[in-house]
Computed example of a mutant assay.
Amino acid sequence: MTIDTSKDQNGATVEVGENAFRYRVSTKWPSLPSDLDLVEVTAVATDSQDQVYVFNRGKHPVAIFSPEGEFIESWGEEVFARAHGITIGSDDTVYCVDDLDHTVKQFSTDGQLLMTLGTSGLYSDTGATSVDYRNIQRAGPPFNFPTNLAISPSGDLYITDGYGNARIHRFSADGKLLLSWGEPGDGHGQFQIPHGIAIDRNENVYVADRENSRIQIFTADGQYKDEWNDVARPCEVFIGDDSNVYVAELGFRAGMWSGTHPPIPNATGGRMSIFNLRGELQSRWGGGKTPCAPGDFFAPHDVWVDSHGDVYVSEVTMSAGGNRGLVSPNCHSLQKFIHQSKKVPQ
């Protein structure tokens, strides 16, 4: 099966990015069966075969597709309160973060439940009883609306917690809590929605500190090292096999909290940015000026890069404003960007 690429109004192939990070925008990806409605895609990940796991808020929460976009199967029906984050380990173990259930579940690739972290429906006492981080009064134990998970090279699990907490929790592979750090605020080691997380080969921890519009970097033991500020409400951070850092940024035109405002007039909307490990910007695209156009974004929420360097970006299009008419109901919630090194028919 050939992956179609998007054309602009003049019939030219749409490309995004710059330098070594140029991509062709895929269109008609994935190919959805008539009875499969994803509603909105909160997260996306690929396994060792580059099969794509699409975590969504429809009736079939984990929908699996071939790299070409052909539907394979789905699972997770009636298992989740609300889909949020998904991560697949090198052994193809699938981790799904359910923010409204306050749990993280580990599955086999065919959907068999292997382990649950947290207690279903039970949230820790931080003062917050909703996803509004501004109600947090103190840091607490796992979990209060957790958001995402990353796996370190040594196999430990790091979880961002999240909307109703301000902590990073480190677990052993078998689910034992080893360490937690963080508290509400905007200082070093403090968070306002620790939303996304990634671990590099040296076990440094990169945290997308969303409402502080920064990425904080820590040692494996939670010691503050550095932060990057050239980001706009980052939702997820992913470190590829190329050791570059891919950041999905929500921006300031979607999902704004009641009573909050952009930092400057005409602040950027949703976009994708790629940095090297020194925090130097390598490529960037989007910005939300035409949010439903191929290659642009309304509400980027997650990013994953497969073994071929292709980039998948999911968006919470409906809950960030589509349900209030800010964008068309047909606006994309998942896009695939094909690395320029691939030959694609024109």
Score class of each variant (00 low, 15 high):
262 P>D: 07
258 S>N: 15
68 E>L: 02
252 F>G: 03
123 Y>R: 14
131 V>H: 04
308 H>W: 11
232 A>T: 15
25 V>T: 04
288 G>K: 00
190 Q>E: 15
58 G>P: 11
158 Y>I: 11
301 H>K: 01
100 L>A: 12
331 C>H: 04
208 A>K: 00
245 V>P: 02
321 G>W: 10
193 I>A: 00
188 H>Q: 15
129 T>N: 10
162 G>Y: 02
180 S>R: 15
184 P>L: 04
255 G>A: 06
102 H>I: 05
292 C>M: 04
130 S>Q: 06
54 V>Q: 09
93 T>L: 15
12 A>H: 15
67 P>S: 05
305 V>H: 01
81 A>I: 12
220 A>T: 11
213 S>N: 08
151 I>W: 06
269 G>W: 07
185 G>N: 07
230 D>K: 03
309 G>A: 08
70 E>L: 13
160 T>I: 04
32 L>H: 07
277 L>M: 13
57 R>A: 11
155 G>E: 08
242 D>A: 05
283 S>D: 04
258 S>P: 13
255 G>F: 07
52 V>D: 02
179 L>E: 13
162 G>P: 08
10 N>H: 14
27 T>A: 04
200 D>W: 02
313 V>M: 02
36 L>W: 09
181 W>F: 15
181 W>K: 11
255 G>S: 09
21 F>S: 07
271 R>Y: 05
326 L>I: 15
212 N>P: 09
165 N>T: 13
319 S>I: 12
202 N>D: 15
50 D>N: 14
327 V>E: 03
141 P>F: 12
273 S>V: 15
115 M>H: 10
303 V>A: 05
67 P>V: 12
134 R>Q: 14
65 F>N: 09
196 G>Q: 01
104 V>D: 01
165 N>P: 09
96 C>Q: 07
12 A>Y: 14
304 W>C: 09
212 N>V: 12
152 S>H: 10
35 D>R: 10
49 Q>N: 14
241 D>F: 12
246 Y>W: 05
51 Q>P: 08
266 N>L: 09
46 T>A: 03
127 G>W: 10
312 Y>S: 02
57 R>H: 09
204 N>H: 12
215 I>N: 00
212 N>M: 07
43 A>L: 07
